[in-house]
Design a protein around this nucleic acid. Structure first.
Lengths: 330, 330
DNA sequence: CTGAAAGCGCTTACAG
DNA sequence: CTGAAAGCGCTTACAG
């Protein structure tokens, strides 16, 4: 292993002081000629400063990202987008997973604060008071993603708008009997806001009675919900599912019952994962823009850091994906 | 923002020297009584040392992980598993994405080395000589994942075994005409090793002619490959796909042609993502154990760090998932 | 078993 | 425009 070359080495080799090399990297004044000399040496040695040695720098140029899991398509998109945005602007991003554990999430928050990061992007499991306290105590800018965060800055999916769009889409088909497979209210975005959008959307089209079943995001729960709904009301014409995965479960149940989609029952979802198009018929669904959520979150954080004013609550749009799972009105 | 409490504060508050507090954290000798005093203060102040300030420590307790993308199911599983394994053992893991960019991958490698990480887990885009040089020069332990790495230590999926298992499974059905949708040889694991397994597997069951088409992992390429294969050979009885996603494309083409699965054509894949069971019929496929790859990679790296001997090449198994997409022999 | 001192690789006033 | 000095929050010999 070769000796690691440090800033002091670069300084010595270029015949300048360390402070000058430091200024070279941090945009301070360096005479053009000196700059050239330093640059040459840096290239020769393929040198880059050690980001983590900036112990007493005003800005660390490090941003912390806390996510609930490393294992979801959404998280994958969000952190890809954050990482890219930040990298292109010279920031180092440190990703910490809470692994679905609230206490680990709290620990991650505290640890990042201690590492002197310039800011934190938090994709929260849920908003807890302890967490709010930690954020406050950290004294560094925090942007919360995909979760309403009244006491701070957040970037959200437009769940209400999406729900409303799907509600009116289904409503316009003039179905008499509609079912909805929802999610517990503990998930505010999906369980409350999205549902509200759907309900008000169908209502706007004159449908006032919706049969409701509750699922838990899983394939199986969609299957069970479909069974429950069709048991309660044999003549259901359409089932709106709060997530694609549950819609897949509904597909399975309808298939087993010999009911055709969309001739007998129409089905729709929310999510817009690539799988939706694999189904037969392709699922009519709605895709949230997770990449945009990540990028906007990062952009917002950098603005806060540089002292710009930002909105406390920003909404990111969605895209309607029309498949073949909803019957057209003849 | 409150003043950050540092190790010096803890030392002062416990009436000991900084070195003693440091030893407290790093397992050095501290008298039981002193230990208690320090512990009390630490708890009162909810203190944890700043991992990145250990500039001249022998071990940084930081492990770097370089992945090709943050945006794939497999990567998600691998890093979840690595992160968990390492966290439980007191390591901090730093995840860097190469975002499908070879030069960024190289930069990530160099940067991590400069950060003085104790070791690196590399899920490589491909093995390049520059990269091998960087790894060598880094002078720190590196474990390569899911890619054969003759010059170092690696942890691999058992692609040959998986291919062979699928090959014999299909072969035993005594199909006369079999097709294979493969992947370019540039991907050694899938394009060469897996294919070899499949070919030798079917051959072992007496099938010697296999019609081959090439795809690029995508849904569309699976669709096109199916078209090409069925064009070349109308009576194909089975199509083995090197990946599930391409198998989905095959499903679509067969559906459009009015061919039933498995009555007319049997189909199988590799991957075992959750989506496979959503299809109708469920896809017969084979699941690699990405969690195990991650954990074994991390375990191996820690062994190297602690000076234990490790195998240069370790293979991780798979699980056969029997769906309904392959015709049973009557 | 413990602490003062030196050092890790940087950055930041400050004097020139 | 530049460099010497002090400092960031830790760890590590070393002396006691």
């Amino acid at each position: 292993m070769e000796k690691k070359v440090t800033m002091a080495d670069i300084a010595r080799l270029s015949g300048v002081g360390k402070s000058t090399v430091s200024r070279y990297f941090n945009g301070g004044y360096v005479k053009e000629e000196t700059r050239k000399r330093i640059q040459k040496v840096i290239e020769d040695y393929d040198y880059e400063p050690n980001t983590f040695a900036r112990l007493n720098a005003k800005e660390s140029n490090v941003i912390g990202v806390v996510v609930p899991t490393l294992n979801s398509k959404i998280t994958g998109r969000v952190i890809t987008s954050i990482d890219r945005y930040l990298r292109e602007r010279g920031y180092t991003t440190i990703i910490k997973s809470s692994d679905h554990d609230v206490s680990l999430e709290l620990q991650n928050l505290k640890r990042l604060a201690r590492l002197n990061v310039d800011g934190i992007i938090l994709s929260a499991l849920s908003v807890t008071s302890e967490q709010e306290a930690a954020v406050k105590e950290a004294g560094i800018p925090v942007v919360v993603l995909a979760q309403n965060y009244p006491s701070g800055i957040c970037v959200l999916d437009d769940d209400y708008g999406a729900g409303y769009a799907m509600g009116t889409y289904i409503g316009k088909r003039k179905f008499q009997k509609v079912g909805y497979v929802g999610i517990s209210q503990r998930d505010e975005a999906v369980g409350i806001v999205r549902k509200k959008g759907v309900m008000e959307g169908v209502a706007a089209e004159g449908i006032h009675q919706v049969y409701i079943a509750l699922g838990d995001y899983s394939f199986e729960s969609g299957y069970e919900a479909a069974k429950e709904l069709l048991d309660k009301e044999k003549k259901l014409e359409a089932i709106i599912c709060a997530t694609d995965r549950m819609a897949f479960g509904v597909y399975k149940y309808l298939g087993e019952m010999g009911l055709r989609i969309p001739e007998d029952v129409s089905v729709s979802g929310f999510g817009g994962y690539d799988e939706s198009e694999l189904l037969n018929p392709a699922l009519t669904t709605l895709k949230f823009d997770s990449y945009r959520v990540g990028a906007l979150g990062a952009e917002t954080l950098l603005k806060i850091i540089s002292g710009e004013k930002v909105s406390t609550k920003q909404m990111v749009g969605f895209e309607f994906i029309e498949g073949g799972s909803v019957r057209k009105t003849e």
